[in-house]
Design a protein around this nucleic acid. Structure first.
Length: 606
RNA sequence: GCCCCCGUAGCUCAGUUGGAUAGAGCAUCGGUUUCCUAAACCGAGGGCCACUGGUUCGAAUCCAGUCGGGGGUACCA
């Protein structure tokens, strides 16, 4: 982790100050990893709740016991000494230590220098700002979306899709060789059901026109009829068996279902702007399961339980993993295990492999990961070469609709496409009333409507369940995608209207307002936010951050003087305009890039 | 029964490895446009941070238990 140079300087000075103020105790404690070390202080630095207190804060409570002194007294003494030390650094007044408050030392960064360094960096590197090479040469696998064939693309698939898409972009920004994986469910007993349903109630017409809708209708009908007639499930099992045995009729139907679904998925991904690097269905693993099972057997991990072939995991909390059902058929866990090996073979030594899948499946992943760990242990794979420790389940909460969980079977489902088109329609109306001669209105309306939909998914912590609420998704006020896009469009407008070449060679002393400094601090925070997201696999940090940045900028934009006049960005004072335009450019670049990382477009106008 | 997630303003949610008076959006009320895009900005009201106990200089945050909601719990994925 690259260290923040301002923090580092502050930590060094503070550490030195402690040694100077308490030499006897320092002599006793000595160097090393203790409360006096730069390292310790650096890691303890916090961000003050109140921005006016400074850029960072160091709480001295932990030193209190050691120093046998009261925290406020310690803070006061050390603050004075830190200030003296920092002032003695000639010609380099980057940071300063303000008067201590309570038990905290507060550090400030010289605003003019922070502004200059930050804006120069952003303007110089443009959308590369925040890039890193920490991932250089490392493969990062991310599986997301993974819809089921012969089922429609509902909003429930949306979360996985947009989360994964965002993570893919973020890891790329950090230099990883990212492999975005789509792993559609194109195998398993549900195809037996589809085949039975088609043979009973469908015909060629089912596969024409709106084929996906027709297939869904068959699927729903199957689940209604099976209530009355449980023997349908036996037929379905038989039909799937036919498929597995390579029966030509069954295979042809399956191929057709697949083709229809893939065409539909590709269309939806195009709409969403989502991309993948590697797409393979469950069926592609059919040949790879047997070798995997043999490996497990050779390792002595398998046993027969109630007629099924299982792996006992030696864990009270986890049921055994099922490799084969009583009838010999494999299960999705078998396929997932084979898939893990497949991925490892294709991308040897990957850094991490993520599964962006609903939290309801967390036990399933625990079972699979544990099984892989046992296998590698049994095979004597050295610890640092094990794939099993690099597998991570990135879970997320459910999407509910009207308080109930959505289910394809019950037909309680909202189609993603309906949501997007409704959102776009509303955006279009809004644009018409405000900016009716906007060129490319349909495209912009789509981008902004889609922005609302995606942002609604990414602006909350993954683990939370979210209730799908039309009013909320279609509300473009406040914390929303359109709010960010609108702010961005205004920034672009400013840049156009100024008619200036953007230059970072401006007089940063002119940025004196609190509001402006707040914006600069936020811009300076961006690279750290990006790495936080990567570590926690939480894109909402970016969503949250962008809202704060947009808000901060909007209050610069509408700042008023004492007489109530707006302090405009573009004025007849050339120097002031130039530096403010540099600030505008920097904000615009960061919002643009942040939106990109979330998977949103940033229109020029709206 | 056991396991996982969640419980913060009327609603939807933030709250970084415990830290300085618990924040934002929506909704409500009040203000701002001779207009660099008002999809915005400024302000007001609104809280036993589910409950109880513990750890600590300090707990919304950590631990134990209770209550409430959701999910999972071997031959579906």
């Amino acid at each position: 982790m690259k260290k923040d140079k301002y923090k580092q300087q502050f930590a060094e000075a503070t550490a030195q100050a402690f040694r100077n103020v308490y030499p006897e105790i320092y002599a006793k404690v000595g160097d090393g990893d203790n409360a006096f070390s730069t390292e310790f202080i650096y890691n303890s630095l916090e961000t003050p709740k109140d921005r006016s207190m400074g850029r960072f804060a160091f709480p001295v409570f932990r030193q209190a016991g050691l120093l046998k002194d009261k925290p406020p007294a310690i803070a006061a003494k050390v603050a004075d000494e830190t200030t003296r030390i920092l002032k003695s650094h000639e010609g380099d007044q980057l940071i300063s230590c303000s008067k201590a408050v309570g038990g905290f030392l507060n550090g400030q960064v010289n605003p003019e220098i922070l502004a200059g360094e930050t804006l120069r960096k952003v303007i110089g590197s443009s959308n590369q700002y925040g890039n890193s090479d920490i991932g250089k040469g490392k493969a990062y696998l991310v599986e997301y979306s993974s819809p089921n064939i012969a089922k429609p693309f509902g909003v429930m698939h949306l979360r996985s899709t947009v989360l994964g898409n965002s993570l893919r972009r973020i890891f790329r920004k950090l230099g990883y060789d990212v492999v975005g994986i789509n792993y559609p469910g194109d195998w398993g007993t549900q195809f037996g059901k589809m085949i039975v349903a088609y043979e009973k109630w469908g015909d060629e017409k089912t596969l024409e026109g709106n084929a996906v809708q027709n297939l869904l209708a068959l699927y729903v009908r199957y689940h209604q009829e099976v209530e009355q007639n449980p023997s349908l499930d036996d037929e379905a099992r038989l039909a799937f068996r036919r498929l597995e045995e390579g029966n030509p009729d069954a295979l042809r139907l399956w191929e057709t279902f697949k083709k229809i679904s893939h065409a539909e998925f590709d269309r939806v991904y195009g709409l969403l702007g989502v991309e993948f690097d590697w797409v393979y269905g469950e069926s592609e693993l059919n040949e790879r399961m047997e070798p995997l099972i043999e490996r497990l057997e050779t390792a002595g991990l398998t046993s027969i339980s109630q007629g099924a072939l299982v792996v006992e995991l030696g864990d009270d909390q986890l049921p055994p993993l099922l490799l084969r059902k009583g009838d010999g058929a494999t299960l999705y866990a078998t396929r997932d295990l084979a898939g893990m090996v497949y991925r490892w073979e294709r991308h040897q030594d990957f850094h991490e492999s993520l599964y962006v899948v609903n939290s309801a499946q967390s036990d399933h992943f625990k079972q699979c990961f544990k099984t892989m760990a046992l296998l590698e242990e049994a095979e004597g794979v050295p610890l640092d070469e094990r794939m099993s420790s690099r597998l991570k389940h990135v879970g997320f909460g459910m999407i509910r609709f009207g308080g109930k969980s959505m289910s394809t079977r019950g037909g309680n489902i909202v189609l993603l496409e309906d949501v997007i088109s409704e959102a776009s329609r509303l955006v279009r109306e809004k644009i018409k009333e405000k900016n009716s001669d906007l060129a490319g209105i349909d495209q912009v309306a789509h981008e902004v409507g889609l922005g609302a939909v995606i942002f609604a998914q990414l602006s909350v912590r993954r683990q939370r369940d979210v209730d799908f609420d039309w009013d909320k998704v279609l509300n473009f006020l406040g914390a929303s995608g359109p709010y960010l896009q609108y702010t961005h469009a205004r920034l672009r407008s400013l840049l156009r209207k100024s008619g200036l070449e953007i230059s970072s060679d401006v007089d940063y002393r002119l940025l004196v307002a609190d509001e402006e400094n707040r914006v600069i601090e936020l811009i300076a925070d961006f690279p750290q936010i990006v790495t936080d997201v990567a570590e926690q696999h939480e894109p909402y940090y970016i969503a949250n951050y962008l809202l704060r940045l947009a808000e901060a900028f909007n209050s610069v934009y509408q700042r008023k003087d004492d007489e109530g006049n707006i302090q405009k960005i573009i004025s007849d004072q050339a120097d002031l305009t130039a530096v403010r335009i540099a600030l505008v450019r920097a904000v615009q670049v960061v919002i643009n890039e942040g939106l990109y990382l979330l998977g949103l477009e940033a229109p020029e106008e709206m």
